[in-house]
Every structure is written in C-alpha cells, then in structure tokens.
Design a protein around this nucleic acid. Sequence first.
DNA 1: GCCGTTTTCGGCCCGACTGTTTTCAGTCG
Length: 571
Amino acid sequence: MKNKLVAEILYEIADLLDIKGEIFFKTRAYRMAAQTIEMLDEDIETVTKEGRLRSISGVGEALAKKIQEIVETERLDYLEKLKKEVPEGLLGFLEISGLGPKKISALYRNLNITTIEELRKACVDGKLRSLDGFGEITERNIIRGITLKEKTSGRVLLNLAYIDGNSYLEYLKKFDKIDKVSLAGSLRRMKETIGDVDILASSDYADEVMDYFVGYDNVQRVLLKGSTKTSVLLNDNLQVDLRVVKKESYGAALQYFTGSKEHNVKMRGIAIKKGFKLNEYGLFNKETDKYIVGRDEKEVYNKLGLSYVEPELRENRGEIEVASNNKLPDIVGYNDIHGDFHVHSLWSDGTDSIETIADHAQKLGYEYVCIADHSQSLKVANGLSEDRVVKKIKEIEKINKKLKDFRVFCGTECDIKPDGTLDYSDSILKKFDFVGVGIHISFKMDKEEITQRIIKAMENKYVNFVAHPTCRIIGRREPFDLDIDKIFDVARETNTFLEINCFPDRLDLNDIHSKMAKEKNVQFVLGTDAHNLNHLSFMQFGIATARRGWLEKKDILNTYSLKEVEKTLGV
DNA sequence: GCCGTTTTCGGCCCGACTGTTTTCAGTCG
C-alpha cells in the first residue's frame, strides 16, 4: 500500500511550496489531497490502476498525474526539482514554533541561513533584528523554539496527553467562575498521538479564568496570555491551550476547537452554501449576522442538516456526507466492554498472578478475561512450553471453580514462525479456549512473504485471532508492508478475529485499517496486551481506535456477554 | 491546485495573539 508514500510526498511539496512563497490555496490543495489519500479506505494503487484518481475529492488533473507517477515509480520528478530549489534544512525550520514560511524565506534570502546551527548562531549574535519584521524578541523566541523542538520530538502518545489533559481538566472544574469546561482538539478526538492539549471553557469572567489557568502547579511557563486564548507549557514540555468563550458560544466553540481542521473546513463550506456563517462564536445568518445557534454542539450540526457526529469520527473520512443522510453508525461506547482478550500473567512476562488479574478484571466490571501468555520459543518473555501450558490450564480450571459470574479463558499469544507455522502443535492449540497468534521475531520480510506468513497462520483451524496485525510501534517501528486487503479477505473467510491492540504505542490495527476491515465484514477483538494491572486501563484507547474506525458493538467480540462469547467460541 | 444547481474564472474558513509596527504581517490552530 503506497497511500502513505503518496501522502508524504504531497505534504513535503506543500511545505516546499510554502517556503518558496507559493499562494496559500495551492499549498492547501496539496495538503488536502495528501490528507484524503492518507485516510483513504482503499489502496491508492488499485485506484490508480482503475483510472479513478480524479474521483478522489481534491484530486484534479495535475495531482492525478503526479500521484500516478509516484505510484508507478515511487518517486516524483517535481519533488526532486523543488528540493533543488529549497535547501533541505529549511523544511525542518517549519517545526520551530514562531517560524512560518515567510520568515524562513526571509532568513534564507537575506542571511543565507540553511541549518539549525546557523539559525541559532545568528539569533545569539543578534543578526536577525536587522531584517524587516524581526526583532530582539523574535530572536529569543526562535532560540526557545529550537530548544523545545530538540527536547520533544513534536507529538506525544495519546495516553500521556490523556493523563495531563484530564488532570488539568479536574483542576479547572474546581474553579467556580467556570461554567462548562471540556477537552477539545485531537485529544477529544482520541487521536493516537497528540501535538498539544486543547481545553475549552465557558465563563463570563475570562480574565479571572486565565489567571486561574496559569496558576496550575504543573505549569513550567506561560507562552501567551489573552482574554480568549492562553497557552502554557507543562513541566513535561506538553503545551496546553485554553480558550474561554461565553455560554451562548460554547457549543460552536467546542465544535470548532475539536476539529479536525479538515472536518471544520467542510462544515463551514456547508454553512456557507446554506446561507450561514459558522465560526467559534456560533452559527450566524450570512447576510444579517444574526445569531442562530451556538450554545450546544448538537444544535450546530442539526441546524446544518447533519446528525450529531461523535468527536472520534471528525476526520473528514466521509462522516459529514453520511451524517447528512442520517446514516452514521452507532459506534461502540466506552462502557460497552465485557472483557479483555489479551492479558499476560506471571506464567510468561506479566507481573501478576491469574487470580489477581481476575480479581482486578471483576472490579472493572468485566465478566471474563483471557490470559494470553507467550508461547515457547519466545524465551525472553518466558514463553510457556507445552508442558507448562497443560499446568496453566489446570490452574485456570481451579480458579474458575471459585469464581461466580466470571470466567478466566485460557488463551495464548502464540508466535507465528517465519515460515508461517505456529509455535505450538495442533494438539496443544486445541486445548486453549482462545488462540491468538502474533509475530515477535523476523520482522524484515518482503510484502508477499510477510502477508503469506500471517495468512498461513490464520488458516490453521485452531487460530481465533491475530494479535497486533501490522506490528507497528508508534514512533519506533514502521508497520509491515502487508497486502492488507488480502489479510482482511482471509480473516473474513477463516472467521479469524483481528485484534485492535490497545497498548498506546501500538494501537494496531489502527483506525484507518479498522474501518477498511469493517467494510469487508471482518470481526474484531480488543486486547490491552497488559503486562501489569495498570495496563488493563489501556482498553479505553483501543475502544477509541475502534470508534475512530467506525466500529459498532456487533463488530467487536468484547461487547458480547460471557454467555454470548462462550456460545460464539464454543467453549 | 481544485472546483462549479448563480461561476470554466475567481473564489477558496476565519479569528486571536504577538511582535513589529504606527495600522499590520505573520503565525497558529
């Protein structure tokens, strides 16, 4: 699948054109197309082969030609040409807070600065202040921006932002001059990585709210402070923005600041077509500026002829079109889960006994938990030999006898060997209640080989699910280059569940793949891959991913009651 | 560069804050 490659190249062109001083709308066209292709729920190669590129929204004649070239040659002449015109280092400058295309261009044209080191030195030496639009403060801010960029690589994993964001939220809720307050931005949409935390509040005392906001213990520095918007940097270098609006604007503002940007652009387009104007203060009559709605988020959607769109769906992946037909899926809820299918115990590399895990799972309101320990060849993780599997099954039987209205399933996360055979014999596999398979060694294989390896495993009749199917680790390991359509087809044919692994640095399958798989009627399980009790709470991130993938209760085994699971699995 | 039920040309979302200015450009989301 080359969707990501195509998107990356288009994004890079947009950045390069920005620095070259190309008009905003042109670079936006590149970014919109890149975003659409990145989120596309089919393979761009297929679309190209079938001559349907122009049917992708935002792709016209020029882009179609470029995309075709990328798909066929995995490169683009136009990009190479642009790269020759714009020194490589300048692209990285865009990540420095306070620097945009115009300033970067000025730095290059006037001072011939092309590397971070040259930039830092020029700031320290006070060379920038001679340029129009630059001053001493700009120099200091750029130095700060460089330091910050070096400290944080930009985005953090969802769970970290989630903790920071919700703690801040609790602090804000204690202030009696705040009427309503909510997370917004990508954190409310539960995106897998978060750039900064956005919070929205309504109040008639904006200035006092801002004073209270910057008084939070965990604040390292105030970045900017106004009466509607204030930004701070937390001690862990995560940025948090607070917006304060009046009550009558709260819904419109929440819609606006939740994003995504692309979702909002589309919303505004619809507003204009219907004779409205939509901004963070409300929905207004375009001609008279008369306020129509804005107090409640739902009203804004409804007034535009749309059903309410859950935050996790707001990525411009077709949700607006579907909402206009009132056909949005009833996506799985955060409280719809009855159990966890992927937990490691002391038997392999987990830190807790099965009894302790079962006890904790009951406290979470679950009816079942599946203990899926590693298999024998994974020595580093204390994988279970076939003998130990038999012993573990006996222990689980004993524990289950003591439990009421709760069941521990004996599972495994059995290794898929490089040739696609499994790490346990069939005679052992059939003893488990629920067999998961996963890859933990020999990651470097070509597309055909790795696809066949997983398919062969799915074809084993004792296999129930594939754990973390693409094996990506966010920020550290790229996903396998799988023939993903084929994987989904075989999963459907063999009734193999695909896991959404809930571990925050995995979230694998991801949202886009989940949506693609659902369209092929694939069934899912959620597994936290917990290695200690705290990890069991990662379930919510898996649910978030499922929601972002448009999954409904019926698509996910964990939403079934214990009885239904037993019946489905025949155990 | 894309797009079209007023348009094949002339639009394209829009407001807040900062730092530089002395009325505004650039950046950000």
